[in-house]
C-alpha cells in the first residue's frame, strides 16, 4: 500500500513538477487544444454544408474526408502530419511541432465536427426552412440565421465531447519531440516520470487535464441553458391566456 501511494501520489514529486506543469504545460496544452478546436469548428462547419449538398460531386469529397479522418487512429494522423509533412519538405509551421499538432488534431476534429453539425442541421424541422424561404431569405441566409443557430444548440452536448477529445489528443504532440518552452502537460510529466521512475508527475498532469475538461462540460451546459431560455432579461413568461384576444387589424 505504501508503494502504491508512493508511486502515484508522492507529494514531493508532484510538488516539484507543478511549476512546469502550470507555467509551461497548461499554457501549451490549452493553446494547441483551443486552436485545434477553432480550426475543427470552422472546417467542420464547411464540411457539414458540403455533406448536405444535393450534388453528389460536392458531397463525395467531404464524405471521403470525414470517413478517412474519423477512421484513422489519431496517433497515425499526428505522425503523418507532424513527421511526414516536414520530411516531405512541406513546412508550413517551420520547425515548431505545435503548429503541426494543431493542424493534425484540428483535421481530426473537423471530421467529427462535420458529422455533429450535419446531424444538428438535420435535426431542425423542415418547417423552419420553409418559413425562412417564404419570407424571401436566400438559402444561405436561412441556413445562417435560422437553421444553424438552432442546429448547434441541439448538438452542444456532442460538441462538448469533441472539445474534450481535442484537449486530450493535444498530448499526442509528444511524438514530435518538444523543446523547452514548447512542452505541454503530458510531455513534461513523462519526462519527470522517465527520470524518477515515479508516476506521481503523470497523476499531477492528469489532474491538470481534468481541471480543463470537467469545467468545460459545465461551461457548455451553462451556455446551453442560457441559449434555451434566452437571455435573462424579462424572465417572467407571459400568461398563456391571450389578453382578451384583441384582434383588430388594419393591415
Amino acid at each position: 500500500m505504501g508503494d502504491f501511494l508512493h508511486t502515484f501520489f508522492d507529494v514531493h514529486e508532484m510538488w516539484s513538477v507543478l511549476p512546469e506543469l502550470l507555467g509551461e504545460g497548461l499554457r501549451n496544452t490549452l493553446l494547441i487544444a483551443a486552436l485545434a478546436i477553432v480550426f475543427g469548428l470552422a472546417f467542420g462547419m464547411l464540411l457539414a454544408v458540403l455533406l448536405l449538398s444535393k450534388r453528389r460531386l460536392v458531397r463525395l469529397p467531404a464524405r471521403i474526408y470525414v470517413d478517412v479522418f474519423r477512421g484513422l487512429p489519431a496517433i497515425v494522423t499526428v505522425s503523418l502530419v507532424g513527421l511526414g509533412l516536414p520530411a516531405a519538405h512541406l513546412r508550413p509551421f517551420g520547425r515548431s511541432p505545435l503548429g503541426y499538432a494543431v493542424l493534425a488534431v484540428g483535421l481530426i476534429s473537423a471530421a467529427y465536427c462535420a458529422e455533429i453539425f450535419r446531424s444538428g442541421i438535420q435535426s431542425v424541422p423542415p418547417g423552419q426552412v420553409q418559413a425562412g424561404r417564404s419570407l424571401g431569405l436566400s438559402y444561405l441566409k436561412t441556413m445562417r440565421l435560422v437553421v444553424v443557430p438552432q442546429g448547434i444548440r441541439n448538438v452542444l452536448p456532442a460538441l462538448t465531447g469533441q472539445f474534450i477529445v481535442d484537449v486530450k489528443e493535444s498530448s499526442l504532440v509528444y511524438l514530435l519531440g518538444l523543446a523547452v518552452g514548447q512542452r505541454e502537460l503530458y510531455f513534461i510529466a513523462q519526462e519527470h516520470q522517465a527520470a524518477s521512475y515515479n508516476s506521481s508527475s503523470l497523476v499531477a498532469a492528469g489532474l491538470c487535464y481534468l481541471v480543463i475538461t470537467i469545467p468545460l462540460t459545465y461551461l457548455v451546459n451553462w451556455l446551453d441553458r442560457r441559449m434555451r431560455t434566452g437571455r435573462p432579461r424579462v424572465a417572467a413568461p407571459a400568461p398563456a391566456v391571450p389578453a382578451g384576444e384583441k384582434t383588430e387589424v388594419s393591415a
Binding site: P125, G127, Q128, Q130, A131, G132, R133, S134, L135, G136, L137, S138, V146, P149, Q150, R153, M227, G230
Partner: peptide, 22 residues
Amino acid sequence: VDAVRARIGMVFQHFNLFPHKS
C-alpha cells in the same frame, strides 16, 4: 424567386416561428 417570395406572405399550419428568437 427570393424577391418574389418577399412579396408573398405565408402562414403555416404549425406556425413555424423561429424558436431561438423573440
